[in-house]
Amino acid sequence: MTPTTANWNLWRRQILAIMRIDLRKTFFAKRGLWIYFLALAPEIPMIGHWLIPTHGPNDTLGQDVQIFAGIFQFFYLRVAIFFGCVGIFSNLFRGEMMDKSLHYYLLAPVRREVLVAGKFLSGLTAAIVIFGGSTILQFPAMFWHHGRELMNAYMFQGPGMSHLISYVIAATLACVGYGSLFLAAGVLFRNPLIPAALLLVWEGINGFLPALLKKFSIIYWLQSICPIPMPAQNAGGRGNILALLVIDIDPAPAVIAIANLLLISAFVIVWAALRARKLEIAYGSE
């Protein structure tokens, strides 16, 4: 059956109603405070660096651009957004199962596919606001202490603005990619932390995998979008153990990386929606 305009209108209204319920829960739940802390964690050392400047020979804008790239790729993408998405997306179904309140959605005249789409979009909206917003805040926190003139020159005459846009896109796509996986984990697994831990390990060992296998990850495509590559030899040159996390192959073109991430996420969401059709409520066994 081909969906009619009436169907689409109904689905749009239902998705908005689901988002209205879930966004409130995600943004204002006390148990989600740690996600805000995780999102804002990079700002703490950056603001500290701003308040207590070192004024050494290494304290240059160029050096800070490298440090920002390191923080973003090693901490923000791999830790903050990863675990933030675990908290936001796996709770959309499994958290409601634990609270014994998922049945209120399942007793409404909403197709399971629409429910999955609505919940994914509400999680995604929350994650993008939190992590995308924090990415934007991190820029002035990192570079403001170099002075307004240098900051303006970097942002508006240099590559700063395009870097910022790339980082926001990377953060957004991280939310899309990890979000879809953790939403599916919440639908499919009684304890979504187990697949989350497995994914963490997989993403962690990505640097050691053959070139083909590296592509079966989220972090490979995200790092391809980041504007400043983190060469292994630079990090390794300082004896930095983080060099192990660097993906030492040619990054994919950004457009390909974005398209692949969106395709992976769409595939995972469709799969989750199909599995959600069979979802049963058995709170007693949770």
């Binding site: 109904l10 239902q14 109603a17 829960k25 005249p109």
Partner: peptide, 17 residues
């Protein structure tokens, strides 16, 4: 969590379109 009686009835009713 956190809903009033009215909000509880109203918010799920919205899912009906």
């Amino acid at each position: 969590r956190g809903l009033t009686g009215y909000e509880f009835v109203e918010c799920y009713l919205r899912l009906f379109g």
